[in-house]
Nucleic acid binder design. Structure first.
Lengths: 107, 107
DNA sequence: CTATATAAGTAGCCTGTCTACATAACCAGG
DNA sequence: CCTGGTTATGTAGACAGGCTACTTATATAG
């Protein structure tokens, strides 16, 4: 999975894993990996800045808590984030339809 | 169609329209628009540099000719380009499968 | 002659992703 | 005890591709 291909689609993926319930950054990375069957191994340098971006956009809300002596920032999907996720899904349907049809191969 | 979403997928689209036969830049832009039902309106500042990139990669070969007094650079898919296109198609299948499954919404 | 269509191109910006690193606490094995 | 692995968060800087906004040129329609 090359780096550029994910570009512009990461936000939707992050929102999607948070739909199942609040999760912290590290957990999100693991969830992405699990849900993609190992295909998605997002580096922390990609995910953490992206989460802050989503937080700034008010699509997710972050809270610090401590579990077993370790600090975690747990993110929760906001109402706006839920709406954004739906929009991302719709956008993905459009996008994949267009690319799929132009790329063709299978008619 | 946002700007980033296309990123990393443009090469495949360009190669795909050239699969039907040689075409020049302007014609490629029109073909993309036609084949996407109007969804893809690629600016020249995106397409022309991309074509030169593909040419440098030897995936397409460009030739100047003149039609009706206007100079055109007509691009033809090379053998390597054909292989690259197949790879792009396979990559797209993988990528869209992963994103689709993680993004979910529809199980 | 003016506007539109055809045709190709460039300079410079923007921004999201990656690499590589730093930090820190916990735990298991030797 | 201390080494290495896991959990956990983060940053700085590089990179690259697509975009905006332009330029140039010819043909054709009005």
């Amino acid at each position: 999975m090359n780096a550029d291909s994910i570009r512009g689609h990461l936000d939707g993926l992050l929102l999607a894993v948070l739909e199942d319930g609040p999760l912290h950054g590290y957990g999100i990375i693991e969830a992405l990996q699990r849900r993609s069957g190992g295909a998605l191994e997002m580096p922390t340098g990609t995910v953490y800045p992206a989460l802050r971006r989503l937080e700034r956009a008010r699509w997710i809300a972050g809270d610090w808590d401590t579990v077993g002596g370790r600090r975690r920032r747990t993110y929760t999907l906001t109402r706006a984030g839920r709406r954004a996720l739906e929009e991302q899904r719709a956008e993905w349907i459009r996008f994949s339809g267009v690319v799929g049809s132009v790329l063709g191969g299978a008619p």
